[in-house]
Amino acid sequence: MTSAPRPPLGRSLLRLFTVQGSWNYERLQGIGVGVAEEPLLRDLQAAGNGAAYRAAVARGAHFFNAHPYLCGLAVGAAARAEHEGATPNQVERLRSALCGPLGSLGDRLVWAGWLPVTSGLALIGVALGLGMGAILGFLVVYNVGHVALRWWALRAGWAHGVRVAAALHQPFLQRAAAWSGPAMALVVGAALPLSTGYLAAGFTGWARGLLFGAAAAGCALLWWGRGRLTGLRYGLALLAVAALAGWVWR
């Protein structure tokens, strides 16, 4: 067993900001996770155990897929396990076991929670006339949560090692996951009519009627045709029809 008195968590955190830079269909985030874990493994080499260091670096770069902001939890936990002399099998099992929970928790907390909530507030701010202030507010508020989550994940992973599952049961995570759904629904719900009013301000009469009709029809089509029809395809199709109608109806 090797002791690790001052782990270079800062360097690892900086590398975690690039964790998806080498995302590919072979190992998904594996290369990025390996790059982020490498600074935490250097102690093994310094302790004269070059073979253990190289084996740990190779394991760190194997297939991995989770939410990018929570990858630090796996990076810290796997590096700690390597320092504590866990077997290669244990480390591989730990990494595999973390993929699913970190993916679903991150998607719920960030992609379906924190991000739409803060961007929805930015939309509301712009619609209410706050202009660039709303955008700056979004960037600051969102990234306070973003950086805090990455830092917490890395520290928690390093602190818990192979017992990292305990970190995922933190009360604040459970509370945040429980609140993210309702908060997102409320904020994005409020942002939709305000954004519509903001974008439709220049339209009058028949154009407004047409807008609401096409929006309602599109919403129904996208709802019933999900999996086949996307917002982008509907948008392109509607623009093509509008361009054609515009040429005909002069």
Binding site: P116, L192, L210, A215, C219, L221, A242
Partner: peptide
């Protein structure tokens, strides 16, 4: 034609956001 294009763009965006949410 320009108005129709604008209406189509805004309608599609609202539809995409509502259905996606």
């Amino acid at each position: 034609g320009v108005t129709l294009l604008g209406v189509a763009a805004v309608a599609a965006a609202i539809a995409a956001a509502t259905a996606g949410t």
